[in-house]
């Protein structure tokens, strides 16, 4: 089982008014209509720092979404309304499609945006499926937590304009999502980079990202490639954690392209150059590396 995503930003007291202050700061930032509120007297230094960090994360996520063609500036259910934490398709008239529940039951076999026939979804229109439900509390098990984060990120990646922004605002309204999930979701939605950028990012570790070996390290070691080349700067890139998992998973899945072998099986006995070619192709196909 995969280890749980690391908990971050846990220094702040999880009192209601601190959470409300954070939610207010996020709303202020994302609406870009109201100037930032002065800090309240009950705030601790840690709380102030945490809010600044969350604001930065949200700000960068919104920038990434805009780069990807999303429009977060859509009508929404006010975070403080009775429907807070619930999804609405029309952005605030109370037409709730699904209530938030503690258990995430989202499955990939559902009606995704990209599952819709061509010309629907893929940022060309609204997705017809519901987004993953947002549990009011963090899921009880690491696997459930990881599944929620994956489901939310995958849904956002295929959601059309507007709905992605609205769902994002609902995510921001849930304190635990903001602290535990948002860095991973933001990283997943970030645009592709050049190889040089991905390699330079290795020197700047961030929550939401993993260091990835372009040529898989364990099979390469087993077949006698040296540690110098396996862990060398040319073979290391920093990529979103969720895409790291997807790429690793794909290396173990059989595929028609490789004569019904998995990429890992196909590469057995192959040269470093062949492994590097397949590794870079995977980064491009998973939209991490610019073509």
């Amino acid at each position: 089982m995969k280890p749980p995503l690391p908990r971050i930003l846990s220094a702040v007291p999880r009192t209601l008014h601190v959470q409300l202050e954070i939610a207010k700061a996020i709303r202020t930032l994302t609406s870009q209509e109201v100037p930032a509120q002065p800090q309240r007297s009950f705030e601790t230094d840690a709380a102030g720092e945490e809010r600044e960090l969350i604001k930065q994360i949200v700000h960068e996520l919104l920038l990434d979404l805009r780069k990807a063609g999303f429009d977060p500036d859509e009508p929404r259910v006010p975070a403080g309304s009775p429907d807070g934490g619930q999804w609405t398709r029309d952005g605030g008239n109370g037409a709730v499609l699904s209530d938030a529940t503690p258990d995430n039951t989202w499955k990939p076999g559902g009606q995704y945006a990209a599952n819709n026939p061509p010309d629907i979804g893929h940022n060309q229109g609204p997705p017809l499926e519901e987004p993953p439900r947002i549990p009011p509390k963090p899921p009880a098990t690491p696997q459930a937590l990881n599944n929620f984060i994956k489901a939310a990120a995958y849904w956002l990646a295929t959601a059309g304009k507007g709905v992605a922004g609205r769902y994002l605002r609902l995510l921001q309204a849930a304190y635990w999502v903001t602290t535990l999930a948002l860095p991973y979701i933001r990283a997943y939605l970030s645009p592709p980079k050049t190889l040089q950028e991905l390699q330079q990012d290795v020197l700047n570790p961030q929550t939401g990202y993993d260091i990835h070996h372009i040529v898989e390290q364990t099979p390469a070691r087993k077949e006698g490639f040296s540690d110098d080349i396996i862990d060398g700067p040319d073979n290391l890139v920093r990529i979103p954690t969720l895409k790291h998992w997807q790429i690793n998973g794909r290396y173990g899945e059989r595929n028609e392209k490789y004569d019904n072998l998995s990429p890992r099986e196909y590469l057995r006995g192959k040269s470093w150059e062949d492994r590097m070619r397949v590794g870079k192709e995977a980064l491009i196909l998973f939209k991490v590396l610019k073509p």
């Binding site: 990807a68 995704y112 945006a113 990209a114 599952n115 061509p118 979804g121 893929h122 940022n123 995958y154 990646a157 295929t158 895409k243 997807q246 998973g249 794909r250 595929n255 028609e256 392209k257 192709e281 995977a282 491009i284 196909l285 998973f286 939209k287």
Partner: peptide, 23 residues
């Protein structure tokens, strides 16, 4: 259909469609 899937943001299907098209 493969081209449409490959151009989507739905992974891993988009990646697998792209892989077949490359092949």
């Amino acid at each position: 259909v493969l081209r449409t899937i490959a151009s989507s943001n739905r992974l891993p299907q988009a990646a697998n469609a792209g892989l077949i098209l490359n092949g």
